[in-house]
């Protein structure tokens, strides 16, 4: 084992961690907002429900790799798109990656949130209505906290999956952890060692993330905590 090489590789790869995390959190944030919107739309009137179902069906039925290619290279084929107001965003690989990742996670997120909303006991909502809460207040105080508590474990999984998915951003020239690993391999031709280093970085990030999610879960479920003393 060439430890000097491994240490050097690790240092170079760690420089990509901020971008990996940024891609994850920005796209999960946008995706989550979109997911809430989709879940609410789906629960509303009929044409909306069909549209949302179609969206979820298409995004969950195709590989993310293909979605990124379609958004990055596919859309750029049309002069109309290149001349539109969207182009300043779409011409940048960063925003294309964010767009693809957000749209993808929104489809999965919408289903998770729907599951969470369905799990809110009818009685809780009724009791709140009886005590005079309505509309926004009802959502803010009762439905959303209960739904989020229910959806958090699944959303935690989604976050871990998104960290892994950002590795596909390298194919549109972004230099996150995977992108840097390809660059190092292209200079040293030592694929196995570099991929092992990159893999362990993702593993550590996801391990820490899983821990943090478990903490958040415990905090959101105070009634499940063991009694102290």
């Amino acid at each position: 084992m060439d430890f000097a090489f491994l240490i050097d590789t690790m240092q170079k790869l760690l420089a990509g961690v901020p971008l990996t995390l940024e891609l994850t959190f920005v796209s999960v944030a946008i995706g989550a907002a979109l997911a809430v919107l989709l879940a609410v739309l789906r629960a509303s009137f009929l044409p909306c429900e069909w549209l949302v179902r179609a969206y979820v069906f298409v995004l969950r039925g195709t590989p993310l790799l293909l979605q990124i290619f379609l958004i990055y290279y596919g859309i750029g084929q049309f002069a109309e798109v290149r001349n539109s107001f969207l182009w300043p965003f779409l011409r940048q690989p960063y925003w294309c990656a964010i767009l693809a990742l957000s749209l993808n996670t929104a489809a999965y997120g919408a289903e998770i949130i729907r599951g969470g909303l369905l799990a809110v006991p009818q009685g809780a909502a009724e009791a709140a209505r009886v005590s005079g809460m309505s509309g926004f207040l009802l959502y803010r105080r009762i439905i959303l906290p209960l739904a989020i508590r229910q959806a958090l474990p699944a959303y935690g999984n989604e976050l871990v999956i998104m960290v892994k998915s950002t590795s596909l951003a390298s194919i549109v020239t972004l230099m996150e952890v995977s992108g840097i690993s390809y660059a190092i391999i292209s200079e040293t031709y030592r694929a196995l060692e570099v991929f092992l280093c990159a893999g362990s970085i993702y593993l550590v990030i996801n391990f820490l993330l899983t821990r943090a999610i478990a903490q958040a879960e415990a905090w959101l479920n105070p009634h499940l905590r063991p009694a102290t003393s």
Binding site: K164, Y202, F207
Partner: peptide
């Protein structure tokens, strides 16, 4: 399960391909 679910699938493919 922890290791496999923590590493990007693309890297797993590459690790098997070269490793």
């Amino acid at each position: 399960t922890t290791v496999v679910r923590g590493i990007p699938d693309l890297l797993v493919v590459y690790l098997f391909y070269f490793g």
